[in-house]
Computed example of a mutant assay.
Amino acid sequence: MNDSYYKDKEKIYDAEVLESSSLDENIIIKILIRAGRTIAKPALEVLEMALDPFTPTQVRVSLMAALAYLIMPFDLFPDFMPLVGYSDDFVALTAVLSIWSRYMTPAIRARAERKLNKLFPFVK
């Protein structure tokens, strides 16, 4: 078979992965409120980058994997453990952000910051 056959198959697979891995923003928001502002900032940046239509498919898939790790209650350090519960989630989120930082735009960062400030308003 020729190369175009395999390229077409890759496009179909990528589309299926994105459709089957839809993001439930409400679940993520509930977890972030419990986790706090420190975890929420990179998570919202990852979320906004994953939702951005200009983010390439392979980048979106890895971003969604990092968000899925955040949602999983039992991971390297289960989320219910005091002090360390969200530390592994924070590392996963910041790692994926640094890997794909070239796709972070000011618009994505601004949307994440607005959501962050809405979830955690500053007290004066």
Rank of each mutant, 00 (worst) to 15 (best):
G36I: 13
K11I: 13
A40V: 12
A68P: 05
L70K: 00
S98E: 09
A15K: 15
I33M: 09
G36Y: 08
V123Q: 04
F90H: 03
A107Q: 10
F80Y: 15
I71N: 00
A68N: 11
M81R: 14
P82G: 13
E113A: 13
F74Y: 04
Y86S: 05
L44E: 04
S4Q: 15
F90P: 01
L18G: 13
R114I: 09
D88H: 02
D89G: 00
I31E: 00
Q58M: 10
L44N: 12
D52L: 12
K41P: 07
L83P: 00
L32F: 09
A112T: 15
P42A: 13
V46G: 04
I29A: 03
P42Q: 04
F77D: 01
V46D: 04
P121E: 02
I108H: 05
R114Q: 03
T55N: 06
E25S: 12
K30S: 10
M64A: 03
S87N: 06
P73Y: 06
D75Q: 10
N26I: 04
L44G: 08
E10T: 15
S21T: 10
E16R: 13
K11D: 06
D52P: 09
F122Y: 03
F90C: 01
T94P: 01
S21A: 12
S20A: 11
E10Q: 14
L93I: 02
M104G: 04
A43G: 07
F54R: 14
Y6F: 15
N2A: 13
F120P: 00
A110T: 11
L18E: 07
P106R: 06
I27A: 02
L67K: 03
T105E: 07
I33A: 04
R37M: 10
Y6T: 15
L51F: 08
A92F: 07
A95N: 13
D3P: 09
M1T: 13
L119D: 03
I12K: 15
A92G: 05
A66I: 09
R60L: 06
T55E: 08
S22K: 09
D3A: 14
A92V: 10
D75C: 02
K124E: 01
M72W: 05
A66H: 07
K11V: 12
A35P: 02
